[in-house]
Amino acid sequence: MTPAETSPVPRTIEELRRTVGGLVGEDPDAISDDDDLVLDWALDSVRAMTFVGGLRKAGVEVTLLELTEAPTLSAWWALISARADGAR
């Protein structure tokens, strides 16, 4: 089980869910789209930064600030999918 830095950009919200599940060390199916990933799932900044770093390496321009401002799967998916389109 490894964090997301080496995995590719998630192509669906489900892939994102699995990736985030790995980040927080919990069962991905337990994470709902609108759960607060920080407060409800204790996502920490280091793991988040690692995730962001991986995305940026793959050309998806997101910032840590943006992700932490709205830390939900749905918000993240919206951001990533929009930016990823730009990268592809």
């Binding site: 927080v24 920080v38 407060l39 409800d40 204790a42 996502l43």
Partner: peptide, 8 residues
């Protein structure tokens, strides 16, 4: 584990 709880 403890950090996870603490962060919440």
């Amino acid at each position: 584990a403890e950090m996870r709880t603490t962060r919440r």
